[in-house]
């Protein structure tokens, strides 16, 4: 359960990224956040994963007041949140399975458990036969699936996807969407920031439209509605 109440954030350069935003997201929901560049989408992500602190208002994720988190506690909070990015951010010198295992190694999980979990994930993202391949040997869609695998390796409650289909063609985008829906069906809340109108129209979900730091539309039915 995510609850944003009157969240305001402005940057030192004077940009008001968010203006008194209130939003609540239930567990297990799939939600799009759309809007033009500079509408505050990235800021919402940064606030949710603890990178930025709101100037005012409260952000509560799963009972944790994110804005009030101590520096020391941020890494532990981060473990509840999986992040995927437009540019994949895989380690080029590690194979697919090593990339996924890396996220678990960092948390000090035993090798046996890591191996088991990596196999599960490779199965889920359908990359079993590519387990020993390096990222540059994969297509964009496959790389993005590895990123998704890495993000959900630790079984986070919330998956944040920052334009996951930004670099992909429609066919591959559809693949990624289906994977995200599968993960969502397993109980993970998915929050997806996107520009891709076609996808929003095709996979209709709750859609929040941001513009200049305000929520201008919150449609439960979904679909892109021109302002």
């Amino acid at each position: 359960m995510i609850e944003l109440r009157n969240v305001t954030k402005s940057y030192p350069n004077g940009v008001h990224a968010l203006n008194r935003i209130s939003l609540s997201i239930e567990d297990g929901e799939f939600i799009y956040i759309i809007g033009p560049t500079g509408s505050g989408k990235s800021t919402i992500i940064k606030i949710l994963n603890g990178e930025e602190v709101p100037d005012s208002g409260t952000v509560v994720v799963d009972g944790i007041n994110v804005g009030a988190l101590k520096h020391r506690k941020v890494p532990y909070y981060r473990r509840n949140i999986g992040c995927i990015f437009q540019d994949y951010r895989l380690l080029p010198k590690l194979t697919v399975q090593e990339n996924i295992a890396f996220a678990l190694e960092v948390l000090g999980i035993s090798k046996k458990k890591i191996r088991k979990r990596v196999t599960e994930i490779l199965d889920l993202v359908d990359l079993k036969e590519k387990a020993r391949a390096y990222p540059d040997e994969l297509s964009g869609g496959q790389q993005q699936r590895v990123t998704i695998g890495r993000a959900i390796a630790n079984k986070p409650k919330l998956l944040i996807a920052d334009e996951p289909t930004g670099n992909l063609d429609p066919e591959k985008s559809k693949e990624i969407m289906e994977l995200l829906e599968k993960i969502n069906a397993m109980g993970t809340t998915v929050l997806m920031v996107t520009h891709d109108i076609v996808l929003v129209e095709k996979f209709k979900k709750r859609t929040v439209t941001l513009d200049q730091g305000f929520v201008v539309k919150d449609s439960k039915k979904g679909g892109y509605v021109s302002l």
């Binding site: 020391r72 909070y77 981060r78 951010r89 890396f102 996220a103 960092v106 948390l107 390796a153």
Partner: peptide, 16 residues
């Protein structure tokens, strides 16, 4: 640098 940013994203503690 990339490795560190990924480590931070997945929740590695600072001392790690």
């Amino acid at each position: 640098k990339d490795e560190i940013s990924i480590m931070k994203t997945v929740g590695a503690t600072n001392w790690y």
